[in-house]
Design a protein around this nucleic acid. Structure first.
Lengths: 170, 170
DNA sequence: ATCATCCGGTGCTAAATTGCAAGCGGTTTT
DNA sequence: AAAACCGCTTGCAATTTAGCACCGGATGAT
C-alpha cells in the first residue's frame, strides 16, 4: 500500500504525482483539449506520446485518483477517461505554468493564446473553468449560462489560426 | 544550438525546462531554503539527491539560464549558485504547487506551513517575495523594510517545529 | 606542520525508465 | 468481406537514474 515518499513536502509530493514529462501533458489534453479516449490522447497530442507510455501513465493517474475510467456506451471497445476533482484542481497550476512558459520560453503564438486568456482572466476565470469541468466530468450542477470558458478558449485558438492561415495564403 | 522541442505549447516548453523529478526541488531549496552551495544542496535536501544528478541538473539549469554560478570570495573551492529572474518568476508556480499538494497529498504539517502562508498571502505576498529574491540574488534595490517574507516563512517553520518537539517531550 | 574535514564534483555499475515499432484479439464501418 | 479502428501489450535498444566510492585541492584546528 505505502509507497515510499522522498519527503513530506507538499511541493515534492505534488512532483511525485505529476512531476514527469508526460502526466501534465495528458491532463492538459484531457481538460483543455477535451480528449477522453486512448486513441485521441495518442494521436492528437502535439507532442507525440508513445502508446506504452500513455498506457502506463493512464494507469498511474488512475491509481493516484487523478482520473477515472469508464466504458463508452456507444462503442464496446472504447474507454472514457475523465479527470477527477483532484486533477481539476490543477487548473491554477496550469495557468501559472502557461504564464511562465509564455514569458520565458519560445512558445508559439497560436499555442499561447489559451494561456494568455487564462492568465488575463485570473482566479475568477480559473474558478469558472473548474466549475465547468466539474459539471462536464463529475456531473455537478452548473448555474452559469452563455458561452463556456472552454468554448471561449477554443474559439480564440481557432480564430487566431484562421487569421494566420489567411495571412499566409494571401 | 537548437534543441528539438516536442511542441510550441507554453506548458510543454515549461515542462521541458523543469518537468522532471529534481529541477524544481533544487530551485525550491535555493529560493526557499537559502541553499547556494553544492554541498548544501546535496546534504541538506529533504529528498536526498545524489551528487551526479545534482551536478547534472545544475549544469542544465545553468544552460537554461535558470541559475548562475559564481566563485565564493571567502573560499576558493566554493561555488555560489543563484537563481536568475527566470527562476524567481517561478514563485507563483511554487505557490500553486504547494497549495495543491497541501490539499491533495499527505504532506506533513511542518513542511506545509510555508506553503500555507504563501497560499494565504496570495499574489501580494508572492510579489513581495520575488522582489526580495531579486534583491538578494540580483542586487535589485529593495524599498520595503521590516521582516522579510523569507524570514517570516522560516520563523513560522521554526515555531511549528519547536512546538511539535515540545509537545512530544512533555 | 600535520591531519581531519570540507570542497565541487567524476566514474563506475546496476537498475529503472523511455522511445519506437510491431502486433493482437476484438469491434465497427464501409 | 474487407478495411479501419479500438485499447492496449510485447520486445528490444537506448537513455536516464540511483547509489556509492573516490579525487585532488583548500581549509581549519591543533
Amino acid at each position: 500500500m505505502d509507497v515510499a515518499h522522498r519527503s513530506g513536502c507538499p511541493i515534492n509530493l505534488s512532483l511525485e504525482v505529476f512531476g514527469d514529462r508526460w502526466s501534465l501533458i495528458i491532463l492538459r489534453d484531457m481538460m483543455f483539449g477535451g480528449r477522453r479516449h486512448f486513441r485521441e490522447l495518442l494521436t492528437q497530442s502535439e507532442e507525440g506520446i508513445s502508446s506504452n507510455i500513455l498506457a502506463d501513465r493512464l494507469k498511474m493517474l488512475l491509481d493516484q485518483g487523478m482520473i477515472t475510467k469508464a466504458d463508452d456506451p456507444s462503442h464496446k471497445q472504447k474507454a472514457i477517461y475523465s479527470p477527477t476533482e483532484k486533477a481539476i484542481a490543477l487548473v491554477p497550476v496550469f495557468a501559472q505554468l502557461g504564464a511562465w512558459g509564455r514569458r520565458y520560453t519560445a512558445a508559439t503564438e497560436e499555442l499561447s493564446i489559451r494561456a494568455q486568456l487564462l492568465e488575463e482572466g485570473g482566479p475568477v476565470l480559473w474558478n469558472r473553468f473548474m466549475s465547468e469541468l466539474a459539471h462536464v466530468h463529475l456531473g455537478r450542477p452548473l448555474r452559469r449560462k452563455g458561452p463556456t470558458v472552454a468554448e471561449r478558449l477554443q474559439a480564440a485558438y481557432d480564430d487566431l489560426r484562421a487569421r494566420k492561415t489567411k495571412r499566409k495564403t494571401t
